[in-house]
Simulated scan of single mutants.
Amino acid sequence: MGVPGPGRSVLGDALVLFSTVAATASILLSQRLIRHYGPVNTTTWTLTCGTLLTLPFALSSGGPTQGFR
């Protein structure tokens, strides 16, 4: 992550660590929700909430294809 060079890998390492912790928490929390609401409802609500939370960032950055020129 970022520009290669001395001292620059700490940010990338921190992002990977945070991503791993977030993915683990998501899996553990999803297990409880799946037992209570079922896999289809849990997946539907997870994707819906994720879309609604990231949509403002995607729209404010110029759309989904802004960086693919």
Rank of each mutant, 00 (worst) to 15 (best):
residue 31 Q to M: 01
residue 22 A to M: 11
residue 38 G to T: 00
residue 22 A to S: 11
residue 53 L to K: 06
residue 30 S to I: 07
residue 64 P to A: 15
residue 60 S to P: 03
residue 59 L to E: 07
residue 24 T to G: 09
residue 10 V to G: 10
residue 3 V to Q: 12
residue 46 T to Q: 10
residue 19 S to P: 01
residue 61 S to R: 13
residue 20 T to G: 13
residue 38 G to V: 01
residue 66 Q to Y: 15
residue 63 G to A: 02
residue 38 G to M: 03
residue 52 L to H: 02
residue 17 L to V: 07
residue 7 G to T: 00
residue 26 S to A: 06
residue 24 T to N: 03
residue 25 A to I: 10
residue 11 L to I: 13
residue 68 F to W: 13
residue 53 L to N: 05
residue 24 T to C: 09
residue 10 V to F: 14
residue 67 G to Y: 15
residue 21 V to S: 09
residue 43 T to G: 11
residue 42 T to L: 02
residue 49 C to A: 15
residue 49 C to F: 13
residue 23 A to H: 07
residue 52 L to S: 05
residue 32 R to D: 02
residue 8 R to C: 09
residue 6 P to W: 11
residue 47 L to Q: 03
residue 49 C to D: 06
residue 1 M to N: 11
residue 15 L to H: 01
residue 19 S to Q: 07
residue 66 Q to I: 12
residue 37 Y to S: 05
residue 33 L to P: 00
residue 61 S to M: 13
residue 8 R to V: 04
residue 46 T to C: 10
residue 2 G to C: 01
residue 65 T to I: 14
residue 55 L to E: 04
residue 27 I to K: 10
residue 22 A to P: 05
residue 26 S to P: 03
residue 4 P to R: 05
residue 39 P to K: 01
residue 33 L to C: 05
residue 67 G to P: 00
residue 1 M to P: 10
residue 46 T to G: 06
residue 61 S to T: 14
residue 19 S to N: 05
residue 37 Y to V: 01
residue 36 H to N: 03
residue 48 T to Q: 12
residue 51 T to C: 15
residue 24 T to I: 12
residue 1 M to V: 15
residue 44 T to H: 09
residue 21 V to G: 06
residue 11 L to Q: 08
residue 39 P to R: 07
residue 64 P to D: 13
residue 62 G to M: 03
residue 9 S to I: 06
residue 1 M to R: 08
residue 6 P to K: 10
residue 33 L to Q: 06
residue 56 P to I: 04
residue 7 G to I: 01
residue 41 N to D: 09
residue 42 T to Q: 00
residue 65 T to N: 12
residue 11 L to R: 06
residue 47 L to V: 12
residue 34 I to T: 04
residue 47 L to K: 04
residue 15 L to P: 00
